[in-house]
């Protein structure tokens, strides 16, 4: 017994030795800068007017509360995140169910689906801005006019710009949902379906009562991962619209970025980033909380 305690202690010490470098690196590279961010959110730091710098108390946060551009950005973040994640899950699921039915050639879909995922979001944003959506040049623009509709200034008018950035994000990341769902569908037991077929359940019933509950863990994981990525989306929007026209596609990320690096108002930019940080943490906390009991119920 004593001897085992000693061995456990040795194991603990060894385990600490292995984790220490990684944990220390995380502490220095993420926690320290975040503490710095919180500190600077209580400061006036304006690189354009450095003589004004100094402690500002909660002034940045008060300003934020009365800032209509902030609330606008917050609303857009919500719309952007919710609609792009919903679209990814629904289209990804539909596509996965469809491809499962195809007798041959599934591998083509897998290969094609990997392409958008591995592309840099900034390149995706640039491709869409130029090759697809540019007026009198892009293929989407051409298609819309060829079909006899009126020309739409996809990135130059407020509502189309928001729709465009959501569509671009959905285009790039739906394959992720699709691939995860396809893998999950492929791992489902076939005998349940046999039983259901004998019970004369139709396709919709089978999907609703068998497939969907079995896929729930995968769906929840996909939602969590996609919400996180959506909340930190930056490069594709930055490349496609830069948040514009005006502030029409300016989600919170872009507002915090522009306040800091364009207006050089780092104090206020920090406060905006802190609010985004809190929202992200809160949302992920809720999502993980929702996931935990369900998983036990599913017996995983």
């Amino acid at each position: 017994m004593r001897r085992e305690d000693g061995a456990h202690q040795g194991e603990r010490r060894f385990a600490l030795m292995l984790t220490a470098p990684g944990m220390l690196a995380l502490l220095l590279t993420t926690t320290f800068p975040l503490a710095y961010l919180v500190w600077s959110s209580f400061q006036t730091i304006n690189l354009a007017m450095p003589f004004m710098d100094g402690f500002a108390g909660v002034q940045n946060y008060v300003e934020m509360w009365h800032d209509s551009r902030y609330w606008h950005a917050m609303g857009l973040t919500g719309i952007y995140t919710f609609s792009s994640v919903a679209l990814q899950v629904v289209i990804g699921m539909g596509l996965a169910l469809l491809v499962m039915q195809i007798p041959a050639g599934q591998w083509i879909f897998r290969i094609v689906a990997i392409l958008p995922i591995v592309l840099a979001p900034v390149v995706v944003g640039l491709f869409w801005r130029t090759l697809m959506l540019a007026p009198n040049f892009g293929m989407v623009d051409f298609l819309v006019q060829w079909l006899g509709f009126e020309q739409i200034n996809w990135l130059g008018a407020p509502t189309p710009a928001l729709i465009s950035v959501i569509a671009i994000h959905t285009w790039q990341w739906t394959p992720f949902a699709f691939l995860v769902f396809l893998a999950s569908l492929a791992s489902l037991p076939g005998d349940v379906y046999e039983a259901a077929r004998i019970d004369r359940a139709n396709a919709l019933q089978r999907f609703w009562h068998i497939t969907l509950p079995l896929l729930r863990p995968a769906i929840i994981i996909v939602i969590i991962m996609r919400v996180m990525i959506s909340l930190s989306a930056f490069a594709a929007i930055f490349a496609a619209t830069g948040g514009g026209p005006g502030t029409a596609s300016e989600i919170l990320n872009l507002y915090a970025f522009k306040t800091s690096f364009v207006e050089l108002n780092f104090g206020y930019g920090s406060a905006l980033a802190v609010s985004l940080l809190i929202i992200t943490m809160a949302v992920s906390g809720v999502l993980f909380y929702l996931r935990t009991p369900r998983r036990r119920e599913a017996g995983a």
Binding site: T19, Y36, S232, F257, L276
Partner: peptide
């Protein structure tokens, strides 16, 4: 530590680029 690691993964990059620029 596991939770901490997970939490650091959730940090939005814009919350890091600002302090990193200053530092």
């Amino acid at each position: 530590m596991g939770f901490y690691t997970l939490a650091t993964q959730m940090v939005p990059p814009v919350g890091l680029v600002i302090p990193y620029f200053l530092i």
